[in-house]
């Protein structure tokens, strides 16, 4: 029933609950506990090429710059169809 479809973290939307499938090889990400399997929620998006603010494992917040967020692959486990539009979401909300 889990419908898996990976996308880039940079394309995720505010409020998305995601799981990381792959990260670029950056030590700081690993040290901050962001690696394959990490669960995260997208807290805020920023316009004009700003970072993605994520809440990691429901505990702490980390902001990740655009160029790295573009290299992080994530997927969401969709239950039923409560999130109908899982496209390659591009645009940022707000401002």
């Amino acid at each position: 029933m889990a419908n898996i479809c990976t996308t880039k973290l940079y394309e995720a939307r505010k409020g998305d609950e995601l799981q990381v499938s792959s990260v670029p090889n950056i030590v700081l990400l690993e040290s901050l506990g962001i690696h394959a399997g990490t669960r995260l929620t997208v807290k805020t998006r920023y316009p004009l090429g700003g970072p993605v603010l994520i809440h990691v494992e429901n505990t702490y917040s980390v902001a990740i710059g655009k160029d790295i967020a573009k290299q992080i692959e994530v997927f969401s486990e969709i239950k039923g169809s409560d999130k109908s539009e899982l496209q390659n979401i591009v645009e940022v909300d707000e401002l």
Binding site: Y46, P47, L48, G49, G50, P51, L53, A63, G65, K66
Partner: peptide
């Protein structure tokens, strides 16, 4: 202060540095 860095990372990025 880290919150300010996050808010203005997009602007700083344009200057070639980061928030």
């Amino acid at each position: 202060l880290p919150r300010v860095s996050v808010l203005f990372d997009n602007v700083m990025r344009k200057l070639g540095i980061q928030g």
